[in-house]
Design a protein around this nucleic acid. Structure first.
Lengths: 226, 226
DNA sequence: GTCTATATGGCGATAGAC
DNA sequence: GTCTATCGCCATATAGAC
């Protein structure tokens, strides 16, 4: 039921793969310290390996070492678990992007461009997981947790984009840029992640995504200047 | 088994939605003139409505008005039918992109940019169908039909990109641009298509995808010129 | 080539013991 | 909270009649 957040609040580094609090000290003497968190963690891992199509509550339960009925004590149905996984992925990704911008130095264009590379690197590392966030229709019931994380994700990018654009650019103008920026990074990563080929050259591909974003920003700014 | 091609060889117009030869004159007195073609057509329609997750041989058979066993006379398994659908979608899309470039006039940059808008428009019109092409892992057995269409798809764009780039640009340089170009269009379309919201403003979104591609090309060319 | 019928198996979800 | 057991559903795929 999503009581509380399964998301690690500390900002993760790109390589770490850490998504939820793996072992928060147990509150009482249950079999698991925190089964909901374990389920989300295993769900995210399963999504990365098998995609949304290969996702099932039973498999997640088996991974977590509990019976197939156990998850239903914490999540009312499959969609709820799926939504929790999506929210966790988005939160993690947001942290990764913020961190990448931080590392990119002071130039606003470079900071925004770096998020494209980080996005591509993240998706290549997490495979199918990310397609869930965008291509799955969450029912109204479960949409909110995902939406909240989605908002935080956009906040980070909007701020970076506003810095990169001329002072006084309208909100709509900033949003347009962010949308295209995210789209391009997403598309680049999805095309790469689509094949079965292993995620080799992740660094190189991330660098290309960054370069593409830089090119786009350059052209965009040139057009704005007339 | 893909004996022959179910793909309409005449170049389709963007709006038409025509994918396979719907009623090629029957050869003998069977119930259906060409069940394989009908199955592919219905499969593509089902993919557009329900996505890969909602795809099943039984549903396609029902749509085609035959029993759930009938498809297995023509396609050895579910994957084969799925691959045939993917190939049909890719072939159709290739035609749409070529047509869009044709309509865009003589300027090479505009011609290439127009394909991004056409791509976005196509995906918005066909919804989930296109994610199959990129995000589904076809087994080695069925990969070839898809791969052949994928090659033709890239050929069209490589030619357009080569025209837009400075004379003498290396093959790798052209390929890099095409990859980023397709990725951005794909990402833009997927983000839009991801939600449940109806495909309103398709024209407007296609125009934005075109503009984004134009910006990217501008920046890319500027960087090449130093 | 297409049908009816069926074997097989997985998944979602619930009931009730502990 | 977790388990075992189970129901119902749907999908893939096959067997054999026509």
């Amino acid at each position: 039921m999503l009581e509380g957040s399964y998301i690690d609040e500390t900002t993760p580094r790109p390589g770490e793969r850490r998504i939820g609090p793996v072992s928060r000290p147990t509150r009482r003497g249950y079999h698991h310290g925190d089964l909901p968190a374990v389920l989300v963690r295993e769900g995210v891992a399963l999504l990365a390996e098998a995609g949304v199509a290969g996702f099932s509550v039973a498999k997640v339960a088996a991974r977590a070492g509990v019976s197939s009925a156990a998850p239903y004590r914490h999540f009312p149905d499959r969609e709820a678990l799926l939504a929790a996984c999506a929210a966790a992925i988005l939160a993690d990704l947001t942290g990764v992007l913020a961190w990448a911008a931080e590392q990119a130095g002071p130039d606003p264009v470079e900071r925004l461009a770096a998020t494209a590379g980080a996005y591509a690197g993240y998706v290549l590392g997490h495979r199918a997981g990310i397609d869930l966030v965008y291509s799955h229709d969450f029912g109204v019931t479960h949409r909110e947790a995902v939406h909240e994380q989605s908002r935080r994700f956009m906040d980070v990018l909007m701020k970076l984009a506003a810095d990169a654009l001329p002072a006084g650019t309208s909100w709509a103008g900033v949003a347009d840029l962010v949308y295209v920026h995210v789209s391009a990074a997403h598309g680049y990563a999805m095309l790469l992640a689509g094949g079965t080929r292993p995620p080799q050259n992740v660094e190189e591909h991330a660098a290309r995504a960054t370069a593409a974003a830089r090119d786009h920003l350059t052209g965009h700014l040139a057009r704005l200047r007339g």
